[in-house]
């Protein structure tokens, strides 16, 4: 059993290494694109890092490879992919809107904390949070010049964004199913956290349970897939090509090795 346990560890490590290498190559002293378009370069680079962080977070944690946790991460990765592609349709305008929205959201949160303190809430932590938020905001722009957007950052729904990027299936078959997990909807909870009582006198009520499942490697594949799609968009925009294995190529090799080590142990 310990050999299989180690094999899973090595599998995760190989993938994390590949993800980290792919990111570093594209971000460490990377000066592709137009040096004047700071917002575009910042957003595309940081979102790529975010996608990599999500993929690593999943790959290095086998206990998250289940329907309880993996969809939370994967849905975020799909959301990021949609956002990335949508920004690339009009990078200058949209990357600026993306940044402005984030600054405005942080400004609103800080204002809420401020109100809380004025209402008499006593908390030194809250004051520190306020100060840190404000410092972060004003390192980029004076807060008095920041508008707060109470609607969606893109001014559009995710479904419409997918239509615009030419991939409605991404919304229907990837984003929506995992959204049920994120929002704890019945079509997730009713499968993963429900067990039907067999007593007819109880009218088939469902009782809460945590379904116990073996780690599902396919979730890791999904993470590699959604990362690779973002890498492809990055490379296409910056006309960049890499000699490194793509995440999916690395996954296929790693899973082959995992499978061999696993069967060896079973024998």
């Amino acid at each position: 059993m310990s050999t299989q346990y180690d094999a899973i560890g090595r599998f995760g490590f190989r993938l994390c290494q590949n993800i980290s290498d792919n990111l570093t190559e594209r971000t460490a002293d990377f000066r592709g694109g137009d040096g004047f378009e700071t917002a575009v370069n910042s957003v595309l680079s940081t979102l790529l890092a975010r996608q990599s962080a999500l993929a690593i977070g999943l790959a290095e944690s086998p206990l998250t490879w289940s329907g309880h946790i993996a969809p939370l991460v994967l849905r975020s990765m799909i959301d990021l992919l949609i956002t990335y592609r949508w920004i690339l349709l009009d990078p200058r305008q949209r990357s600026q809107e993306y940044i402005s929205y984030g600054l405005g959201t942080e400004k609103l949160l800080t204002a809420h904390y401020q109100q809380k303190l004025e209402d008499g809430f006593e908390g030194a932590d809250v004051k520190r949070i306020m100060e840190a938020n404000m410092a972060w905001i004003e390192s980029q722009q004076f807060q008095m010049f920041i508008a707060v957007n109470l609607g969606s950052w893109s001014g559009s729904s995710v479904r419409k964004m997918c239509d615009e990027i030419g991939d409605p299936d991404l919304y229907k078959f990837s984003y929506t199913p995992f959204s049920s997990c994120v929002h704890n909807m019945w079509n997730h909870v009713g499968k993963w956290n429900a067990r039907t009582c067999d007593n007819p006198l109880h009218k088939q009520h469902a009782v809460g349970v945590i379904r116990d499942v073996w780690p599902i490697v396919d979730f890791v594949f999904r993470a590699c897939k959604y990362l690779e799609l973002v890498l492809d968009e990055f490379d296409r925009y910056y006309e960049y090509s890499s000699n490194l294995d793509t995440p999916i190529t690395a996954f296929n090799a790693a899973v082959q090795e995992l499978s061999e080590e696993w069967e060896k142990e079973d024998d």
Binding site: R195, T196, C197, D198, N199, L201, H202, K203, V207
Partner: peptide, 14 residues
């Protein structure tokens, strides 16, 4: 009354 006076039951193979 049925709910109060009987216990939940589980099909072992479900």
């Amino acid at each position: 009354k049925n709910y109060q006076t009987s216990s939940c039951e589980w099909n072992e193979h479900a």
